[in-house]
Design a binder for these strands. Structure first.
Length: 724
DNA sequence: GTAGTCAAAACAC
DNA sequence: ATCGGACGAATTCGG
DNA sequence: CCGAATTCGTCCGATGTGTTTTGACTAC
């Protein structure tokens, strides 16, 4: 038996033994390590191609990326363990900058959105009715429902500026109380229903507040507010000094709670006007759009004034919103589901007390589906009012110029796992290129634009390649949306360069003369062609259409390498080949039939990615000889910890690992680790490291200022009980 | 004021 | 990016 | 055959490295 397979069986045995007693194997291993210093083992396994990965390792590995500050990139894949001193290199381009904002043409969007841009829209009953445009029949229903709603709303908290912010906070609080998804959806849906009676403007703003946005993602409007500014704002709003605030943050693990706690017992001399949804949303928008000198100061002022005007609860959610995470258990998907339900109530399609779950499900699916193709709440909410959920897909369709949420792949760790999932199904294997996902649109007006994986506009970053699209498109292709990976390309050797090279490309203010990194597109899918959506077609058909519509231009525009394979061995060979060609591994996709359609934003099992493990840390109790000589390995120690945030309050959220450098006789910080731990692990670590806590770092610790942990430890080798 | 440096934020993975 | 936890739905198990 | 147990899929929120952008600050 090889050592590798021993390792595999070790894991396999244990992972089957859920909650039960220790397996004999583990017991034996445990017993040998009775010394107070528990032996641990951290193994870095590199470049393993399959064998070891077949054996149920997934639940017990912690993946890390080892720092590679020497830019010794080409070696990274094969030898990830290059340890170099941490020295900051100065970016020589840092002084060359200008403030420029991406200006987009807004031709395809509704008036409402333009109105919102003026920021000063105030809700009036008249306006809300005027916004109704099409379909007289529905219009009437809407208006009458609205009038009804307005009557109701009078009894609610509301002034001429709209509904109070405190009400949405109460909803948030309710949601926070429970973890039940159905309940959360219900609470949110009822709230949205209530807001619908106040018009689409209001509802839109409520929705945005729920998902922590101020505008669609592709508009590139960012808050420009992070933890640091929030700390300042909290300090200034509550009159505490920064150290007090920071201490409280460590204790609470949540900035919002800090704001709330400090806000309590604080009274202003004069009663402030109560915050409204409009006021809060508009302020967020103003914060997002302010740039330039002393803009940060202005932002802090605005946040401060919001905090002062709001109650303690309101302060909590204002801060969390600005942090970009409400952390109350709902996010985009749940909000969409709730919105669909609210709309169903609103159009009297479903009775509120006794909704048909199946229908509700259907509505929610519709709305989610529409959103993935048109991720713009302004348009969506407006259309929901006018047309209702059921007709939504007819009105809101994929449009070039607005990004589609890209389809994602399910991660797997071996070829056998892939075959297991795709037993009788026809599938295809594609190279997975080591680059950046890019969605390229050619709009009606002939402009070519691109979007990143997260629907950010990346046109400026890749304008050089986008300009050449005339060359790549065949005749008769007017509009399209294609899905591709953009990679750094070495024009000399005609080779693919690693991701790290690509990431050094400028994102803004790109000038032709300054482009140092050339890129090549590897296109693998088409979502839209000449006014027609391709999403429903099978992958086989889409691929055929793709190849017919574009032409290859080596080093600029190529199709992703693919093979339709069936045998394990063939796939393994193809996988190895992909690695040899500087790729990350393979994408395996269903080729034909319904399951092969393009499902935006889904991490579907119909697309699998097979990755090569770069580095893996296995933490467990084991005799060392078991692993001696297995691959490249490295002994690491934990030298510090970071206080956990949110649900990791009270335990360490992450740890700083170091490696012993015999030359310098010091422990050199090498990386941080923060995922892969179960809650039990974290609890155990907390207790364990409590004993080895030290006030100041040892003189023989070497680390960068940025990675300075909150708490220092003795150099401790770790062990992890496995609770699988 | 300008140039250089730093720290925070935003985004890729 | 990766990962673990909580739900809820789907599926299998066991009497 | 039905209820209980188990597995599967989805969503959410913890956390990682490394890069550019940009406002703030500092030294002249």
């Amino acid at each position: 038996m090889t050592k590798q397979s021993k390792l595999g069986s070790f894991f396999q045995t244990n992972s089957k033994n859920a909650k039960s007693k220790q397996s004999p194997n583990e017991k034996e291993l445990n017993g040998d390590e009775a010394s107070p210093k528990i032996v641990d083992y951290l193994q870095l396994q590199s470049g393993t191609k399959g064998e070891i990965l077949d054996s149920n390792l997934s639940s017990s590995t912690n993946t890390i990326n080892v720092k590679d500050q020497n830019q010794n990139i080409s070696d990274t894949k094969k030898n990830p363990m290059i340890i170099v001193p941490t020295n900051q290199t100065l970016n020589e381009n840092q002084h060359k900058r200008k403030s420029a904002r991406i200006v987009e043409s807004d031709n395809s969007e509704s008036e409402v959105e333009d109105e919102m841009k003026t920021k000063k829209i105030k809700y009036t009953q008249k306006e809300s009715c005027v916004t109704q445009t099409k379909s007289p029949e529905i219009k009437q229903i809407s208006i009458s429902a609205k009038v009804q709603g307005i009557k109701d709303a009078k009894s609610e908290e509301k002034d001429s500026n709209g509904i109070y912010y405190s009400e949405i906070c109460r909803m948030f609080e309710q949601v926070e109380q429970t973890t039940k998804r159905l309940e959360i959806t219900d609470i949110t849906a009822k709230y949205f229903f209530k807001m619908m009676s106040l018009g689409s403007d209001h509802l839109t703003k409520c929705v945005y507040l729920c998902v922590n946005q101020v505008a669609p993602e592709y508009k590139g409007i960012e808050l420009g507010v992070g933890e640091s500014l929030l700390l300042k704002a909290i300090a200034s709003a509550t009159g505490k000094n920064m150290t007090a605030v920071k201490e409280e943050v460590e204790k609470c693990g949540d900035l919002g709670l800090v704001a709330k706690n400090f806000r309590t017992n604080q009274r202003t001399l004069f009663p402030m006007p109560k915050l409204t949804i409009n006021k809060v949303f508009d302020t967020f928008y103003e914060i997002s759009t302010s740039t330039g000198a002393s803009s940060q100061q202005k932002k802090v002022q605005k946040i401060t004034s919001l905090l002062v005007s709001g109650s303690d609860i309101e302060a909590k959610f204002i801060i969390r919103s600005l942090e970009g995470k409400l952390r109350i258990g709902f996010a985009e998907k749940t909000v969409l589901t709730a919105l669909a339900q609210a709309s169903a109530f609103y159009h009297n399609a479903e009775s509120k007390s006794n909704p048909d779950p199946e229908k509700m499900n259907k509505y929610s699916e519709i709305l989610k589906h529409v959103y993935t193709q048109l991720p713009n709440y302004n348009i969506l909410v407006e259309a929901l009012f006018t047309h209702g959920v059921e007709k939504l897909p007819l009105v809101c369709k994929l449009v070039p110029g607005i990004p589609v949420k890209p389809m994602l792949a399910f991660p797997t760790k071996s070829v056998s796992e892939v075959l297991n999932r795709f037993k009788e199904i026809e599938f295809t294997c594609e190279y997975k290129y080591d680059g950046e996902r890019i969605q390229i649109h050619k709009c009606e007006d002939g402009k070519v634009v691109s979007f990143s994986r997260n629907s950010e506009n990346s046109t400026e970053k890749f304008y050089d390649i986008l300009e050449k699209f005339e060359k790549f498109t065949n005749e008769g292709v007017s509009t399209f949306v294609i899905d591709a990976e953009v990679v750094a390309w070495d024009t000399q050797s005609q080779n693919i360069l690693p991701f790290q090279v690509l990431s050094t490309r400028k994102r803004k203010d790109t000038k032709e003369s300054e482009i140092t990194v050339q890129v090549c597109l590897f296109v693998f899918d088409i979502l839209y062609l000449n006014g027609e959506s391709m999403l429903q077609k099978s992958l086989n058909d889409r691929r055929k259409i793709l190849w017919e519509s574009f032409k290859v231009s080596p080093g600029e525009f190529q199709f992703a390498e693919y093979k339709n394979l069936k045998e394990v061995d063939d796939i393994q060979i193809f996988l190895d080949q992909s690695i040899a060609d500087n790729c990350e591994g393979l994408m395996v996709k269903v080729l034909n039939g319904e399951e092969s359609s393009y499902e935006p934003s889904k991490r579907s099992r119909n697309w699998l990615k097979v990755l090569i493990l770069v580095a893996c840390i296995y933490l467990f109790i084991v005799k060392k000889d078991y692993l001696d000589g297995v691959g490249d390995s490295l002994d690491l120690v934990v030298i510090g910890g970071y206080t956990g945030k949110g649900k990791r309050t009270g335990v360490y959220g992450g740890f700083l690992l170091a490696v012993y450098d015999p030359d310098q006789e010091e422990y050199q910080a090498i990386c941080k680790i923060g995922t892969g731990f179960s809650e039990a692990n974290l609890k155990e670590f907390k207790e364990m490291f409590e004993k080895t806590k030290i006030e100041i770092p040892k003189s023989y610790y070497s680390f960068g200022e940025a990675e300075k942990p909150d708490v220092w430890f003795e150099p401790t080798q770790v062990s992890v009980e496995r609770y699988i």
